[in-house]
Amino acid sequence: MPHRIVSRLSLLALLAMLAPTLSVGEEFEQHDAHEHGRVTLDVALEGGTLVVEWSAPALQVVGFEHAPRTEAERAALASATAWINRGNGVVGVPPAARCRLRSIQHAPPTLAGHRDAAGKTDHDAEHADFRARVSYECAAPAALTWLEPWVLRQLRGVERVEINLVAPGLQRQSTGASAETRVPLR
């Protein structure tokens, strides 16, 4: 049990940093709402720093939510993981903003049927989400006026997209975007 708590929190290095300060003795477990077809993009912008955090059900990323059983499934998982770790094609921004990829934080989801160190099957993880946090540093943030959610090109069966946007003086949610829809950042 504590093993899984830690593995989940370590999804994001920053979350893991928060974990020791934000957890105490008595604990309960609440499961995230998991909705197939729903993709979330959290976009935060301040100064020249652009942080994009996306999450999607494994079904949308690799097409299944169990531990890979066949060769094809293993290959799909490997290629998806490789793509996520490269950090390419997550979002499109105006080239004039001169944004450079700075860091990627990602940990693979726990897929059901996965056996942990003790050989125990993790039945709780019937649903699994991919989540990655990509940071960019932009040399000309004034030119950063829009963003295109290119990550959607890599996902399948997306029915609902929520883009949450936070910047100084701006908080907004846009829905229903496609990979080519420009989301204004102003």
């Binding site: 929190l9 994001l12 920053l14 979350l15 928060l18 974990a19 934000l22 609440q30 995230d32 959290d42 935060a44 912008l45 301040e46 720093t49 942080v51 955090e53 949450n164 936070v166 910047a167 100084p168």
Partner: peptide, 14 residues
């Protein structure tokens, strides 16, 4: 920093 908003939100929700 606004950039930490979503991280904090998730930490609180979890």
């Amino acid at each position: 920093s606004k950039v930490m908003t979503f991280t904090m939100q998730r930490a609180i929700n979890e």
